[in-house]
Design a protein around this nucleic acid. Structure first.
Length: 461
RNA sequence: GGCCCCAUCGUCUAGUGGCCUAGGACAUCGCCCUCUCACGGCGCAAACACGGGUUCGACUCCCGUUGGGGCUACCA
């Protein structure tokens, strides 16, 4: 039987890091097992669900490359199925209509709480018969009062809950809308999801869902509850912690594969390996190596992983990915030109944003000198070095960085100065700043004419 | 409050009773390389939350405490 997993976000906001990791684990397991990955949008909350969120979530998954095989299915379009299932439960006496008002419920709950008890529904309507379907009502599940509901989590083993803890929870609202715990069961069962992988915030919901699986006559799936991702303060990652949406990381210049690698390493390990390609992740992923304790997201680690991935990304591909960032300041830049200098940049950039920033010097026509840099390295005393550099380049038979370095080393010796006494003025002349790739590599890609032009301009400024 | 889950360096983790003098990675610090910044190389510092058991032997198993997280809605 083919493995079918699903990711079922509710469109009430952006796709955040935790959700993306859950999606990744589902996707990885499906891919690893040669199964199907299904996308389902849980938009049963009419109040909070938005179309913008749907678009954002879809775009995020696409950017990450977590392509789904079926869907997206929208629960808002499957109400007929849910109603049919609710009626079925009602007919079988496994659910009942409840006519209690909000006020009655609140009062009852408050009383229980005051008495130090769990604020559950008092089950006032449980044994009143089915009642009038035309009167405003909710439908509640008739949960067992005693006994134990247990299930096996593939990471934690058997987890047990006392049925006395379970409530006669609402499965359909007064307005006819169905509730999460109900639809998730109907859909997972109807969609053939035999393996539910989700956040462990759903662990305590699971017994309720088991009740429903049984009441509806469905087989119980295998559950794997993955721990949450926390912020630096060990609280669940949220807006407070700054960037939490996947798209924010795209905009900060991180690679999709690096994001996946980072997500995977939070809560999953494969020996001491740190860097995984997408393909390796698929091949090596297994549910039993998932860790149970929550992980704190560390952007410094992401930076490091991203740099590693940039190094293994082909230059042309990296240029294509970085181009949009560079275009913000250099609209005339092309991927071809950028690709030529990517080798000089990829080793010293943690993100595409840094890479694009590091490429500025190549695309500028007139070098803009940073005041401090110019004052320090383009002062009058730099004139001999600069003039000698121009002469050396003019005389250079080839503009290869190795040859140039040799020529400049000889030059420095002849002038009785260190290479750095020449290099820094040249660097500032070439780029306007003091931080850049190696000057000889830059000269090589700039070419003799442009190199001399920039050095001359610095001399005549 | 009740119920459930979790607990190894600052962070992510390896570790499934002896292989642990607890390994790796990131970050930090130091050194080397060096035309700047990085990369890279080498190195220092850094953890089994606590208390009881079980066992010849516990990071590993059990119980408790503490800490953190989650659920407890006509949210998902």
């Amino acid at each position: 039987m083919t493995v079918r997993t699903r990711f079922a976000p509710s469109p009430t906001g952006m796709l955040h890091l935790g959700g993306a990791r859950t999606a990744l684990f589902n996707w990885l397991w499906a891919r690893n097992q040669g199964g199907k990955f299904i996308l389902r949008i849980e938009d049963t909350d009419k109040e909070r669900s938005t179309l913008e969120s749907v678009d954002e979530i879809l775009a995020s998954l696409k950017w990450l490359g977590l392509e789904w095989d079926e869907g997206p299915f929208f629960q808002s379009q499957r109400t007929a199925l849910y109603d049919q299932k609710v009626e079925h439960l009602l007919r079988e006496g496994k659910a009942y209509r409840c006519y209690c008002t909000k006020e009655e419920l609140d009062a009852s709950r408050a009383a229980l709480e005051a008495a130090g008890k769990k604020p559950m529904y008092n089950r006032a309507c449980r044994d009143k018969g089915l009642g009038d379907p035309l009167q405003p009502h909710v439908v509640r599940i008739k949960a067992p009062l005693t006994g134990i509901t247990s299930f096996t989590d593939s990471l934690r083993g058997v987890v047990e809950f006392n049925n006395a803890e379970l409530d006669d929870f609402v499965i359909r609202r007064t307005d006819g809308g169905v509730m999460y715990n109900f639809v998730v069961v109907v859909d997972d069962a109807e969609m053939g999801i035999a393996h539910v992988i989700r956040g462990d915030d759903h662990l305590a919901n699971t017994p309720k869902q088991i009740l429903l699986y049984k009441a509806l006559g469905y087989g119980i799936p295998r559950f794997t509850h993955v721990s949450m991702i926390l912020g630096p303060d060990k609280k669940r990652l949220s807006k407070r912690h700054g960037a939490e949406s996947v798209m924010a990381y795209r905009d900060m210049g991180y690679l999709p594969d690096a994001m996946l690698n980072c997500f995977a390493r939070m809560g999953w390990g494969f020996g001491n390996q740190e860097i995984f390609t997408r393909q390796e992740l698929i091949e090596k992923f297994s549910l039993d190596k998932i860790t149970m304790s929550p992980a704190v997201f560390d952007i410094a680690k992401l930076d490091s992983i991203n740099m590693q991935h940039m190094k293994i990304t082909p230059d042309a591909e990296l240029a294509r990915l970085a181009l949009p960032f560079l275009r913000k300041t250099r609209p005339d830049a092309t991927a071809e030109k950028l690709a030529a200098i990517v080798p000089l940049l990829k080793e010293r950039s943690r993100t595409l944003v840094e890479l694009a920033a590091g490429a500025e010097w190549f695309f500028t026509k007139d070098v803009v000198y940073q005041p401090d840099a110019a004052a320090k390295f383009l002062a009058e005393k730099a004139r001999p070095a600069l003039e000698a550099s121009i002469a050396a380049i003019d005389a250079a038979p080839v503009m290869g960085h190795n040859e140039l370095k040799g020529a400049f080393t000889d030059l420095a010796a002849k002038l009785g100065m260190g290479l750095k006494d020449i290099a820094q003025p040249v660097r500032v002349a070439l780029t306007g700043g003091t931080v850049s790739p190696g000057i000889f590599e830059m000269m090589e890609v700039l070419g003799k004419e442009e190199t001399v032009r920039r050095l001359t301009a610095a001399l005549n400024r």
